[in-house]
Design a protein around this nucleic acid. Structure first.
Length: 98
DNA sequence: GATTTGACCGGAG
DNA sequence: CCTCCGGCCAAAT
């Protein structure tokens, strides 16, 4: 199984309205220490993808990349799913599996 | 093949 | 809240 495939699988399994950190996704994919690679993989993701990439945030529960256009879109998509944000920070009860 | 870069993490100060 | 630092892995230069 290719590594990107494992990551996609985990991201796709995140329930609607929940979020997970990059490190958490890496660990659930059986790739401990690959937090950074998860970010690289998602960045290589084509636009219009079916994967819920917006449900992945950093360990501080904040949306990554400052000033980027993605940040705004991600926030919008999350709010559309009922996720509540304080500034850029996501409320803890939206975490997936703790 | 070596170096830099990036949507990261955790601890220390 | 902030910055600094070392560790991490693959892709791009």
């Amino acid at each position: 199984m290719d590594k990107p495939q494992l990551i996609w699988q985990v991201v796709a399994s995140i329930p609607k309205g929940k979020v997970a950190s990059y490190g958490q996704v890496a660990e659930l994919a059986g790739l401990p220490g690959y937090a950074r690679y998860v970010g690289t993989t998602l960045s290589r993701l084509p636009g219009g993808t079916k994967l819920p990439w917006h449900r992945v945030v950093n360990a501080s529960m904040k949306i990554a990349e400052r000033g980027g256009s993605r940040m705004l879109e991600q926030r919008h998509l999350l709010e559309a799913e009922g996720v509540v944000l304080l500034g850029e920070k996501i409320l803890k009860h939206h975490r997936w599996q703790i």
